[in-house]
C-alpha cells in the first residue's frame, strides 16, 4: 500500500467516523445522566431525512441542518417524556422511537417527493462544501507533512471539524464544570443529587436535549455531507455501532474518539478494498462489510474487558419512602 492510498483510506476514515462520533457523544451525555438511549439510530435517521428534505426544498444546507436538529431534539424529548416524566422502560421507548423514525421518514419522503421514499439528490448549496484550511495549497509540496495536511486534515466539511472539537468540549464540560459534575452524579446516584437540592429531572432533560442536538448533527452530516440526499434506512445501524463504541470507550470522550475512529477505519477499509487477496485466499467483500458489525457484537458481548456503566443507568428515579 503506498502513501497516497494510505492517506485516502485515513481520509475516508475521518469522514466515516464523524457521524459515529457525534452519535457516540450524544449517547455519552444521555447515558452519563442515567438515561439509556438505544434510540440514537432513530434520531440520526429522522435528522438525516429532515435535513435532506429541507435542504432540497430551500436549497440551503443550513436550513436543512436546523430542521434536522429540531426533529432530532423533538424525538429526544419524546424519549425524555416516556422515560423521565412517565418513568417508562427506556429500552422499549428507544426501540419504539427507532421504529417510528424508520417508518415516518419514508412515509413523509414518499408524500413530499414521490421518489420511492428518498429525497432528490442534493446539489450545490444543498450540500456541505469541503473547507480548505489556510495554506493547504501552499504546503502541499512539503514532503510527507504537506500531503497529510492537504489530504487528511484539510478538505472536510465543517461538521467534521465540529465533531472533532466536540471531543475536548465534552471532556471539559463533563470534568471541569458544575453542570458536568451534576450530570455525572445524576447518572451514578440520583438520590445524592436530589438530596443536595438539585433537580434530577431537570438535569436529565438537559442531557436529553444535548443528546438530540448531537444526533441532529450526526444525521445531517450523513445526508448532506457524507451522501447527497436521504435514502431509506440510510443510518444502517450506525446508532447501534455508536452505542458499541460508547461501551468500548467506557463512557469517556477521548476513548470515544478512538473507538469511533477504529470503527471508521474498518468501514473505510471495507469501502476501499472490496476483495482482499491473501496469497490465493480471497476474502469476499461481504466479510469486509460485516467487520464493523462483528466488532460491535464482540464489544457488546463484553470481550474487551469490563466496562462499568453509570450505576443508575436505565432506572427511572423515584424518591424512596
Amino acid at each position: 500500500m503506498d502513501f497516497a492510498t494510505l492517506l485516502q483510506v485515513l481520509d475516508s476514515t475521518v469522514r466515516l467516523a464523524t457521524p459515529l462520533l457525534l452519535a457516540c457523544l450524544a449517547g455519552l451525555f444521555s447515558e452519563r445522566s442515567g438515561v439509556i438511549d438505544i434510540g440514537l439510530e432513530g434520531k440520526m435517521l429522522i435528522a438525516a431525512f429532515f435535513s435532506a428534505a429541507i435542504a432540497a426544498l430551500t436549497g440551503s444546507v443550513w436550513m436543512g441542518l436546523g430542521a434536522g436538529i429540531v426533529s432530532s431534539v423533538l424525538l429526544s424529548g419524546l424519549h425524555g417524556l416516556a422515560s423521565i416524566t412517565f418513568r417508562g422502560n427506556q429500552l422499549i421507548s428507544g426501540v419504539a422511537l427507532n421504529f417510528l423514525a424508520a417508518g415516518l421518514t419514508v412515509l413523509i419522503a414518499q408524500d413530499w417527493f414521490s421518489q420511492g421514499g428518498r429525497t432528490p439528490s442534493l446539489m450545490g448549496a444543498g450540500r456541505w462544501e469541503a473547507i480548505t484550511l489556510p495554506f493547504a495549497e501552499t504546503l502541499r509540496a512539503v514532503p510527507v507533512l504537506g500531503p497529510i495536511y492537504y489530504e487528511l486534515i484539510s478538505g472536510h466539511s465543517i461538521l467534521v471539524y465540529v465533531a472533532l472539537l466536540c471531543v475536548p468540549a465534552t471532556w471539559w464540560v463533563l470534568f471541569r464544570t458544575r453542570f458536568g459534575l451534576r450530570l455525572r452524579a445524576v447518572g451514578e446516584a440520583p438520590e445524592a443529587v436530589d438530596t443536595a437540592g438539585v433537580s434530577v429531572v431537570g438535569l436529565r432533560y438537559a442531557a436529553i436535549v444535548i443528546c438530540g442536538l448531537l444526533c441532529g448533527l450526526a444525521g445531517s452530516y450523513l445526508a448532506t455531507g457524507l451522501q447527497a440526499g436521504f435514502v431509506k434506512d440510510m443510518t444502517a445501524g450506525r446508532g447501534y455501532i455508536a452505542l458499541a463504541a460508547l461501551i468500548f470507550a467506557k463512557w469517556r470522550p477521548w476513548y470515544a474518539l478512538m473507538a469511533c475512529l477504529l470503527f471508521g477505519l474498518l468501514q473505510a477499509v471495507a469501502l476501499r478494498y472490496q476483495n482482499i487477496d491473501f496469497g490465493g485466499i480471497t476474502i469476499p467483500v461481504q466479510v469486509m462489510d460485516a467487520l464493523p458489525y462483528i466488532l460491535t457484537v464482540v464489544i457488546l458481548a463484553g470481550f474487551v474487558g469490563r466496562a462499568i456503566p453509570p450505576r443508575a443507568g436505565g432506572e427511572p428515579y423515584v424518591k424512596e419512602r
Binding site: F175, T177, R178, L181, A192, V193, A196, V198
Partner: peptide, 9 residues
C-alpha cells in the same frame, strides 16, 4: 455537589 460556587469546578 449541589453547593458549588460557580459554573467552573
Amino acid at each position: 455537589l449541589g453547593a458549588e460556587d460557580g459554573r467552573l469546578l
